[in-house]
Design a protein around this nucleic acid. Structure first.
Lengths: 246, 246
DNA sequence: CGATTTCTTGATTATTTTCAACGGAGGTGG
DNA sequence: CCACCTCCGTTGAAAATAATCAAGAAATCG
């Protein structure tokens, strides 16, 4: 059974019956749904929950005094926002839904219990996700610092495709991509207009097909090469492995 | 007593006699010294230790296939490299000394013990540092994505000054800054030449004085404003607070 | 269908990189 | 002690890249 609930956590550790029962209990009281474009929590707020995304896309972002925004990371189905963040007094960033989203809120106390040793498998899964998120954040630093505009854009698309595939949300060489070009601009640190023009280049080089909200990568390898992308930092199992674990 | 050993960890949790004893025991066998410019561990290696910097500056970096480099973070005296990283099979980045460095290596097994609940204070301190490092990494993402060249450079300088002050390594408005302009370029994602010219601007605006390896900030507030810097993401106590804890 | 958001394009301006060259500081060996 | 070398900082000029401005087309949503 690959329920959306287990998809994320069972990737990184094998959950037993007890673990699953605990999570399903939480499910009853802590499930929330959001429309697209709503903040779960804002920069400056006191964090009380961590969020396990069950369905939909979310993202973390930071706003500067000059009103510019930087998207810091994407949370895909199965991803958890940093569980340790509850130790901070105030959020240094905001978390919001990109599409309509269903999530499970993990109260601070529960997270502490889980990380503290009750249900070690869940704790292990949370720690592993935190580690993976840190590696991604490092790669984004490299992306913004060292890659050219087309490389940056391609890199983001490659990463998202790999991550989506790891949770079974691709079909063949295509996937759903709910990002607007403005979102892509705020992800890559480029202007909207520039993103548009480099996307056009990627299209005419037959590296991507992007129509509506559907992304097709006719030649993933080629896009990876063009974007200086290597998947190793993601620490992902591929689909086959993931299925084996369930 | 503010020994270099305790400086880093006692910032985030109160250590008792037992804790200190454990660390001093480690000290005997696990202290290492490096000349400037040596790798502690390289991208691709299997991580076996976490590193607590006792003296000197270190940094994390990533190298791209095209030989470009991005500096990901600085490790100042008292800082610990990510303790959880030992759970990964391979390093996704390298860690190296920027100056001559003394550090204490924390073996994987010890880290696991500490994070597992023996010596909860040390565990708490390690977790807090990890959290702080993650917040810094996020801010660097913003820095590279959204700030102009002079803002980026100024922001890095402000951050380093604040962090150095928090561990007592500033005197008045000045501090030691062992970075070459090439290092700054690899930190900010700018070309060496451009860094040089924007530094010149910052100098002639009287925002920085940089001679030899000595940095003076005649008006920290002004530099912060010019660089869109706010210290909140650092989650630092200031000097007074830090002393209160010792 | 009307309103709004998103995408697209061209033209202009600004920023940043690259190329090339030179000076000084510090270290090494003859 | 001096010659030489390497690393680091500095500068100017040209080329490339990206941002901004402005406007219109296409898609989406109630």
């Amino acid at each position: 059974m690959t329920s959306p609930l287990l998809r994320g956590l069972s990737r990184y550790a094998t959950l037993d019956g007890d673990d699953v029962r605990l999570l399903e209990e939480q499910l009853e009281t802590q499930v929330r749904t959001y429309d697209a474009g709503q903040d779960f929590i804002r920069q400056g707020d006191r964090p009380m929950h961590s969020y396990l995304i069950l369905d939909g896309w979310a993202y973390c972002y930071k706003t500067l005094p000059n009103r510019r925004r930087q998207i810091l990371s994407f949370l895909l189905p199965g991803d958890v926002s940093d569980p340790n963040i509850c130790s901070l007094h105030r959020m240094d960033h905001s978390i919001a839904s990109l599409t309509a989203t269903t999530l499970m809120a993990l109260p601070q106390t529960l997270v502490r219990t889980l990380m503290g040793g009750a249900h070690p498998s869940i704790g292990k899964a949370l720690a592993a996700q935190t580690l993976a998120a840190a590696a991604i954040q490092r790669e984004w630093t490299v992306n913004l610092g060292q890659r050219s505009a087309p490389e940056r854009i391609g890199h983001v698309l490659c990463e998202l495709f790999h991550r989506l595939r790891a949770v079974g949300l691709t079909s063949g060489n295509q996937c759903f991509l709910p990002l607007t070009q403005t979102d892509l601009a705020e992800t890559t640190g480029l202007s909207l207009v520039h993103v548009n023009k480099r996307l056009r280049d990627l299209r005419s080089a037959d590296l991507i097909i992007l129509r509506g909200k559907m992304l097709t990568l006719p030649d993933l390898r080629a896009l990876e090469t063009a974007s200086l992308f290597t998947a190793d930092y993601l620490n992902l199992f591929d689909v086959a492995d993931a299925n084996r674990l369930v």
